[in-house]
Design a protein around this nucleic acid. Sequence first.
DNA 1: ATAATTAGTTTTCCGCTGCAACTTATTAAC
DNA 2: GTTAATAAGTTGCAGCGGAAAACTAATTAT
Lengths: 411, 411
Amino acid sequence: MNNKNTADQAFVRETNLSFVLRQIHTQSPISRAQLAVLTGLNKSTVSSLVDDLIERNLVCETGMNSTGAGRPATLLEINCNAGSIIGVELGVDFVSVAVTDFLGNIIWRRKEDADPSEDQKKMINQTLQIVKEAMTVAKKKGPRIFGIGLATPGTVDLKEGVLIFAPNLHWRNVPFRKLFSEQTKLKVFIENDANAAAISEHLFGTARQCRDFLFVFAGVGIGGGLFLNGELYRGKNGYAGEIGHSPITAEPSQTICHCGNRGCWETYANQYSIIQRVQARLEVKRSSIVPKLMAEQKSPLTIPLIKQAADAGDMEARESFIEAGHAMGQGFAGLINIFNPEKIILGGPLSIAGDYLLPTIKDTIARHSLTEIDQQAEVLISPFGPDASLIGAIAIVADDVLSFPSQLLKK
Amino acid sequence: MNNKNTADQAFVRETNLSFVLRQIHTQSPISRAQLAVLTGLNKSTVSSLVDDLIERNLVCETGMNSTGAGRPATLLEINCNAGSIIGVELGVDFVSVAVTDFLGNIIWRRKEDADPSEDQKKMINQTLQIVKEAMTVAKKKGPRIFGIGLATPGTVDLKEGVLIFAPNLHWRNVPFRKLFSEQTKLKVFIENDANAAAISEHLFGTARQCRDFLFVFAGVGIGGGLFLNGELYRGKNGYAGEIGHSPITAEPSQTICHCGNRGCWETYANQYSIIQRVQARLEVKRSSIVPKLMAEQKSPLTIPLIKQAADAGDMEARESFIEAGHAMGQGFAGLINIFNPEKIILGGPLSIAGDYLLPTIKDTIARHSLTEIDQQAEVLISPFGPDASLIGAIAIVADDVLSFPSQLLKK
DNA sequence: ATAATTAGTTTTCCGCTGCAACTTATTAAC
DNA sequence: GTTAATAAGTTGCAGCGGAAAACTAATTAT
C-alpha cells in the first residue's frame, strides 16, 4: 500500500531531473550555471543532470552566450524533436486527432464527424483508424513516439486508463488504454477534457508559471479544470469542476437546467443560451445581418456565425454576447471568491467570441467581487480556443515525459 | 530562488521520518514490521527511522503484541508527553488560549472577553498575558514547548507570521510572530481561523485519512477551509475560501450582504439570520418558550439560547434552524458540485445546532446535487464545535512537528 | 526438543548530492 | 602580446541514506 509518499535515491534523482527539465522547458534558452542558481542545486549536480537529459535526447545545446568577462555559457534548450505526441479529442459529434512535436507544435491534424450515440464500437474503430494514420506521420518525423493522449468529456480512471462515465456521449466503462495500447503498443493516457485543457495552459499556454488558476471550458455546458497548489484537483471521484451549476442572480430564472435546478449559471452562458438570445432578438425583428448570413452560408444559427455577425458590427449579435458575458462574469466572480485564483482562462467553442465577452466579464467581476479585499484575478482567453482539449490531450503526454524523464532510454 | 522543489539526502530522510511519524500518529499502536508493509520502506530503514524518532522523544514503545506464531511485535505510539502546545484563537469579541499535549488533549484553557476595535495594543498585551500564564502551565507539564499557534480571522502571511488584514477586527499588518516570539522565545505560527480548523479536523478530528474535504465555519459569516489533494489550499493571496458569498436561489433575495451583493448564501444561514428568523416568528407571537428563556437567563437572543429552546421542543426555534439548514444545504450542494469532496464538516458557533441543521442540509443536498453522477459527500458536525479554530491553532503547531521531526534535538 | 514463523538488527553495497579544487574559455588591463 | 580577472563547467572525493541479504531474537506448533 505504498502510495509513493516515501523517498529514496531514485526519487531524488527523478525529482531533480524533472525539475531541471521543467526549468529548461519554461526558461529556455538557459545555461547550466543559471540553472544552478535557479534550482539551488550544486553546479556539479546540474551538470550531471543535464548530461543525463542530453543522453536521453530530451535537451540539446544550442549555442553560446557571452556576457562580459568569463567563459561563455553553453545554452540549453528542449529538443523539440525528442519525440512526437499523438493527441485525441473525443467530442459529442466529432473526433479530432493531432500529431505534435515535444513542444506541442502541430505537425498534422484531422477532424472527423462522428456520432457516439449511434454505435460505440464503430466510433472507436473510426478513431483507431485516424490514430494509426497519425502514427505513420509521427514515425516519418522520428523514431520516438511518447504516447497517445485522450481527452474526453466525463470522468476517467487515470490509473487504469478507463473512461468511467460520459453523460454527453452516453458511454460507460470504456477501457481506452487497453483498446488503444493493444493496437498501437504505445503508452496511452486519458483525462477529462476540461482538466486536459487546464494542463495545456500550464504547459504550453498562458499559465506557464502559474500555481493557481481555473480553466473554464464553455461550450454545450460549462465545465472547469481546477489547477490548485501547482497541480490538478480532481476531487474524490474525479467529478470536481462542475462549476456551471452554481446559481447566479442575474436574471429571473426561467430556464430549468438539465441538472434539475433553476438559476444555474450554465443556462445563461452556454452555447445554446446565446443562440437563443439571438433568436429571441430576431423574432422582434430588429435590423440584423444574421438572417442574411445564415441564408448565404446555408448554415443554421451557430456561435461562429454569430461571431461573424458581431465582427461585421451587428448589434443584436454583440448584445447577445454582452448579455451572456454578464452571466459569465457573475459566475467568474463566484469562482474568484471561492478560489482566489491567479488567473481564469476561458476556452472551448465559446472562446472565439472572447473579444465581445471579455469586457463585460471583467466589468461584472469588478462589480461583484468582495470589495474589502483586493483579490483581482486575471481573466484571459485561451490561445487554443476550441482546440484547448485537443492540445490538452497532447499536454498530458508531454507532462508525463517532463515528470518522469528517466523512463526514457539513454542512447 | 530555490523554493525547495529539488531533493537531496536530507530531504529523503525528513520525508521518510515525517511519513513514518504520521503513520504512527494515525495508526497507533503499530509495530515496525507493520510500518514497513504500510510505507513500502525496507525493514531496516524503518528501524533506523523509528530509532531516530524515539531518540527525539516523539515516539515510544508501549508494549508487545503477539499474534500467533513468531516473535511478538513491539508496539509503537506517539509520545503524547513529547511536548506541549499553546494555541490562541482571536475572535471578534474574545481571546481564547489553551495548552495541550502533543495529541491535542487540553490541559488548561482560558477565554476572556476582548474588544479588538478599541485598542489593538491593549488586546495584544491582554493576549500576551494569558499566553505567559499558559507557558508556566506548560512548563510544569514538561520541559519542551513545541510552539504557539495563532488562529485569526482574515488573511495571513504564513512565512513571515504576519496578520495581513482582518476586516472583522479592523486590523492590518500585525507582526504577531515578531511580537510573540520576542516575549516568549518560542516558535510562533499563524493561520486563518477556518484554515486552522480544517487542519485540526485532518490531524485530530473527523478527517484524519481524508485527502479532500471542506471545513465550513459558520458564525458571524460563513468561511471555508479548503483541504484539497491532501493539503490546504489558500489561493494566490490567501483569500481562498470565501464560500459564503455564492448566491443561492432559496428565497427571494431581500437582504443585501455586507459584500454589496444580494442572494449570498451567508445572509440566509449565518448566526444573525437565524436570530432574525426567530425574532420575526416571535413578532407574529406564536407560542414559543424563547421569551421566557430570555427573561429567565437575562440574556439577549443568542444561538445557544435558541438551541436550548429547540432542545425543549420549541417549534419556532426548530423551524428557524430548519429554514437556515435549507439555505445551508443549497450552499453545500454548490460546493459539492464544484469540489466533489469526500466530506464537508460544519464547525463554528452555529455547529452546536448541528442536530437540527443536519437533516435539512442532507435533504437539500440530495435534491440539488447533480443527478447523473453519484457524488455524495459525507456531511458532519465538527467534534470541536465552537472551539474548532482554537484546536486548529494547536493543530498547526503539531503539524509542524509532524512535518519536520528532525528540527527537534536528539537527547 | 526441534522446526516454523515472524520481528527486528547488522553489514555491505550502491547511488545521490555537496564541496572543493580543478580546467576551460573568454574579456580587461597594462 | 602577455598576464590577470572572471565566469562556466568538470573531476574526484566524502558523507549519507535506503535496499538487500544475512543475521539474531522471540515466540508458537509439533
